[in-house]
């Protein structure tokens, strides 16, 4: 039986994945803190603040949506990031913070309980596009209440 390639990477995904495997060596400053942390003495620790270079850019969000599927993010977080075995990314709530830096860090370094680190196979720019996509997901109007007729 004929062999065929397992992976058929479409041209747009291939472009997005440029930089995969040749990541910049730790050019990213650590950004461990996030706004939900309480700070002892009321003083936040000094830490670099990461800014999403693609913030609110629709084209980057669309690229991020393509990556979200191509990198199997939807396999855990569900289509549209609605939640699956991994938590919802579309409910406006965050385990590890929703700032640019916290989201970047979650993807780059991974998180406990099974979020893999993608910093080894994705360029920082591709991760920022994923962040842009996740930030573009609008939470529903009334998250806390579920009511039955």
């Amino acid at each position: 039986m004929a062999s065929r390639p397992l992976v058929r990477v479409t041209a747009p995904i291939a472009l997005l994945l440029l930089g995969v495997g040749c990541r910049e060596r730790r050019s990213v400053p650590p950004a461990g803190g996030y706004e939900e942390h309480l700070s002892a003495g009321g003083l936040a620790p000094p830490t670099a603040e990461l800014r999403n270079p693609h913030a609110r850019d629709k084209r980057s969000a669309a690229d991020g949506a393509t990556l979200f599927t191509a990198m199997n993010c939807d396999g855990c977080h569900g289509g549209g990031g609605a939640g699956w075995v991994g938590p919802s990314l579309a409910d406006g709530r965050w385990r590890y913070g929703g700032t640019d830096g916290a989201l970047f860090q979650s993807i780059f370094d991974g998180r406990p309980h099974g979020m893999p680190a993608f910093g080894g196979i994705l360029s920082p720019d591709a991760i920022w596009k994923l962040v842009t996509y996740v930030q573009s997901l609008e939470p529903p109007a009334d998250v806390p209440t579920e009511r039955w007729p």
Binding site: G78, G79, G80, A82, W84, P139, P140
Partner: peptide, 8 residues
């Protein structure tokens, strides 16, 4: 919101 609820 437009909720793309895809069941994978």
């Amino acid at each position: 919101m437009t909720h793309r609820r895809v069941v994978v």
